[in-house]
């Protein structure tokens, strides 16, 4: 079997606006990100979203986070405090020390 020495780096992922409820009520998560995904390409937000859905989310309501393979409309994604639209959205390639924030705008107030 292949060894477990895929180089990886840490990033922080944060959930607010009610999203944290899908992730065991934990707002901040430290995630180890492999430098490459299974296809050999650099890991990007797409990969991260999949990973969070499959490995980190404890709640079964996946569709509150992801819809049709992309982040659900109504959820803001900030990459190092900047709107992900400015960084290439799901194609943004993750880097060491990145801080990714997922905020849900769908709640009362």
């Amino acid at each position: 079997m292949a060894s477990n020495t895929i180089p990886s780096f840490p990033i922080t992922v944060e959930f607010t606006g009610g999203l944290e409820l899908l992730f065991s009520n934990q707002r901040k998560h430290n995630i180890q990100v492999p430098e490459q995904d299974s296809s050999g390409a650099k890991t990007n937000i797409s990969w991260l979203v999949d990973h969070l859905c499959n490995n980190v989310m404890k709640d079964s309501r996946k569709d509150m986070f992801v819809l049709h393979n992309s982040v659900r409309p109504g959820i803001l994604v900030l990459i190092n405090d900047a709107d992900w639209e400015l960084e290439g959205e799901s194609n943004y390639e993750l880097q060491k020390g990145d801080s990714i924030l997922f905020v849900s705008t769908l709640h009362g107030g």
């Binding site: 607010t16 803001l76 905020v103 709640h107 009362g108 107030g109």
Partner: peptide, 21 residues
């Protein structure tokens, strides 16, 4: 816009409570 309200709250570090919708 709701999105801007959320962004304003975020960038001003305002304290608010949210529950799931």
């Amino acid at each position: 816009y709701e999105k801007e309200i959320v962004l304003y709250a975020h960038h001003m570090s305002l304290d608010y409570f949210s529950t799931e919708c």
